[in-house]
Design a protein around this nucleic acid. Structure first.
Lengths: 146, 146
DNA sequence: TAATTAAGTCAGAGTGTCGTACTATCGTCA
DNA sequence: TGACGATAGTACGACACTCTGACTTAATTA
């Protein structure tokens, strides 16, 4: 109706991000993982396979330690992750994906693949690959954590 | 240290989005617009120049009417927007950008331009344009609202 | 070994979001 | 023209998320 001016890139990034997130949540819920909030997922998503420390997760997700601790509590109660002492540092504990957490992974990956396929279908494979490559490159200047 | 597998496109979209948002907020705060939260901004950003209805904003932002009403209350109290009756519908009210709101726009636009310039500098102009074009195209399949 | 730094927790407060229920107004059609 | 279903918005209550500040425990450094 009234869009002569192009949206800024920030908003353009946000729109598909949100669409992807919504699809993944709907799919997880349909597969029985219906406790699981976006905030929890943003932490869960960054767990290293061998486990991550709270402080590390907080830095990566751009949240405080307290917030991540709160979210990990919930994930732990729901059986998605477990905490164990870090053998290399008595102060630290490692947050690791637990059995139920592992089960979400193929489900989520399947939905992501499905959405990506739809996008590739719309954009064409070549541009989809360009998008992925450009975003990965952009990460080097926008992700303070690597 | 440990990133052989590529991140999914959702997360790759989120990282620069978040970086852009953080920069805009820091800049607005530095310019004296230090009340102004991300949630408020996500609504404010979608206001049509002639004013928008609450329901319309809610649909675009993917929020409920109540949530948007709550955020608009705050924006109104802070002088960024004003509400007026919709001459075409007695039930509706138009939310319009108010004087103080208009003043944020060049500031925000300047920061967005600055960040985009940095990105273009890193990616090269050609790929920056590709990114913009691809995202705009992707919007047709990911934005349920247009 | 004392001082400093780092990992994590606890407590409290403020913000953001939703579901349900309600009022007022609009549009339609008998 | 007036009754009825749909739509715009508000009110209230609950819960999720996030932060700040203060604290505990363990590691590191001097």
């Amino acid at each position: 109706m009234d869009d002569p001016e192009p949206l800024n890139v920030g908003l353009l990034l946000f729109i598909p991000y949100r669409a992807m997130e919504a699809r993944v949540f709907a799919g997880l819920a349909a597969a029985g993982f219906d406790d699981f909030t976006p905030a929890q997922a943003r932490v869960f998503q960054r767990l290293a396979p061998q486990g991550s420390r709270l402080t590390e997760l907080a830095a990566q997700a751009g949240l405080t330690k307290q917030t991540v601790g709160f979210l990990v509590d919930q994930l732990e109660r729901a059986g998605y992750v477990e905490r164990m002492p870090d053998p290399r540092d008595g102060r630290a504990r490692l947050v690791r994906i637990a059995e139920r957490g592992w089960r979400t992974i193929p489900v989520a990956a399947g939905i992501v693949a499905e959405v990506e396929a739809e996008w590739a279908d719309h954009l064409g494979n070549r541009r989809m690959e360009q998008l992925r490559a450009i975003l990965a490159d952009l990460r080097t200047v926008t992700d303070p954590y690597r």
